Simulated assay, not measured.
Amino acid sequence: MAFLSEYGLFLAKVVTLLVALLIPLLVVASTVARRGHRDTAPPEFEVVKLNDQLDDYQQQLVEATLAEGELKSHRKQRRKEEKKRAKTAVKAASKQPRPRTFVLDFDGDIKASAVASLRHEITALLRLLKPSDEVVVRLESGGGMVHSYGLAASQLNRLIEQQIPLTICVDKVAASGGYMMAAVANKIVAAPFALIGSIGVVAQLPNFNRLLRDNKVDFELYTAGEYKRTVTMFGENNDQGRAKFQQELEQTHQLFQQFVANARPQLDVAAVATGEAWYGQQALSLGLVDQLATSDDYLVAAAAERDVYQLTTLQKRSWQEKLGVAAQQSVEQLASRWLGRATQRPPV
């Protein structure tokens, strides 16, 4: 028992030391990243026509499987077909241009950092899009900070307000803040085993007050305003602070539910706003998504009838900014792993 007690004390000291080291590192990294972001030149876009990319994939496989004698005649025939197709496309475009689909990617972290690119991409598209066009966002996110994902959802809502059809494709996960974003769309397409939902709010933090007190370390916190600070990691928490913190979580949950209800009025929000996440097949039966398919299936089908373009933001960073962003992302990824363990589904 003495060994376990000493080991537990040692482990607590190590955790305290790590927290004490990580917090200043995160502050410094965030400061460097923010300064770099303010000084960074406007982003540049890379646009790839996915129709051409799919044709290239097909041709590579065809040529790889042809006998050597057939390859020359195949390439000659292909050039003829390409010329004919180009002439046909020019004539068709002059009469009735093909509708377009623009594809964006959003890979969300706790802070929804990808919104920095998303806002520029949507601003650029809104200057170009027509009602016949469509925007597809390939979304992957397990959620994070409420205000960050609220902003990301608001950026997507700009498309809805301009009556531009918006489709969200989820291959792996759109949970919590990720589902808040997805709910904005006209259509949600999910892979059969994508995790969907988690309409809830979570907050957790360790408290080291007893450890500090046992080691004769004082922690002093000064505030102005009754509820400026409700619970802390190092101070002594009380029932009043805990109750207020829980009240704030409930209020946030109510706002989340109302947001989803407004975006998807056909959904029985009360039945799904339990904090649970469901696999795509279950989510479809609950009304959380509208279609089961991978983003690949959806875009390949779209390319048969539309011109499909993938839009990506390219941003050059200074070495100072790269260092700051790398340090910040390392800390955030560590936090994401710990947060993810609380809601992780069992392995298959």
Rank of each mutant, 00 (worst) to 15 (best):
L166E: 00
N207T: 10
F219H: 14
I188A: 07
K187S: 08
A203M: 13
V269L: 07
Q266G: 13
L284K: 10
V201G: 07
E276A: 14
C169H: 05
L166T: 05
C169P: 04
V189E: 02
N209I: 02
L205G: 00
I188C: 05
E226F: 09
A174Q: 03
H253C: 03
V269E: 06
H253L: 12
E226D: 14
V184L: 14
G280D: 15
A263L: 05
G241E: 02
L286E: 05
G177A: 06
Y227A: 12
R213V: 08
Q257I: 10
E248P: 00
Q282E: 15
I168G: 02
V260C: 06
V217F: 07
L212D: 04
Q258F: 06
A175P: 00
G197L: 03
G287K: 07
V201S: 14
G177D: 05
E250L: 06
V173K: 06
T223V: 12
P265R: 10
T232C: 02
V202A: 13
L249Q: 08
V272R: 03
T167K: 07
F193R: 06
F256A: 01
T167S: 13
M233D: 00
Q240P: 01
Q254D: 13
E248I: 13
T167A: 14
N207H: 10
A175G: 07
S176F: 15
I188P: 02
Q254P: 03
N237Y: 04
T167H: 04
G178C: 06
N238F: 02
V289F: 11
A271W: 03
E250Y: 04
N209L: 00
K187A: 09
R210S: 14
G235V: 04
A203P: 00
C169M: 06
L212N: 01
G287C: 09
E250S: 02
E248H: 00
Q258S: 13
I196T: 04
M180W: 08
Q258R: 15
M233F: 00
D214F: 13
V170F: 06
L221E: 12
S198D: 13
L221K: 15
G275L: 11
N237Q: 09
L221Q: 11
R242A: 11
T252Q: 14
L249N: 03
C169K: 03
F208W: 04
V272K: 02
P265H: 10
Q246L: 11
G178M: 00
L221G: 01
C169L: 09
W278I: 07
A190T: 13
A174I: 01
K228L: 07
A243G: 02
L212T: 02
V173E: 15
E248R: 14
G287M: 05
T223C: 03
A277F: 10
D218H: 08
Y222P: 00
P192M: 08
Y222V: 08
V184A: 11
Y279K: 09
V201N: 04
V231Q: 04
V173H: 09
V202D: 12
Y179H: 11
A224N: 07
A194I: 09
A182F: 02
M180V: 05
V170Y: 02
E248W: 05
E236H: 01
V260I: 15
Q240A: 12
A273V: 10
G241K: 05
L284M: 05
R229L: 15
A271I: 08
V170N: 04
L205R: 08
K244F: 08
K228T: 11
S198G: 15
Q282N: 13
V217T: 13
D239T: 09
M181N: 01
D171F: 08
D214E: 12
E220I: 11
V269G: 06
Q258T: 13
V202R: 11
A270E: 15
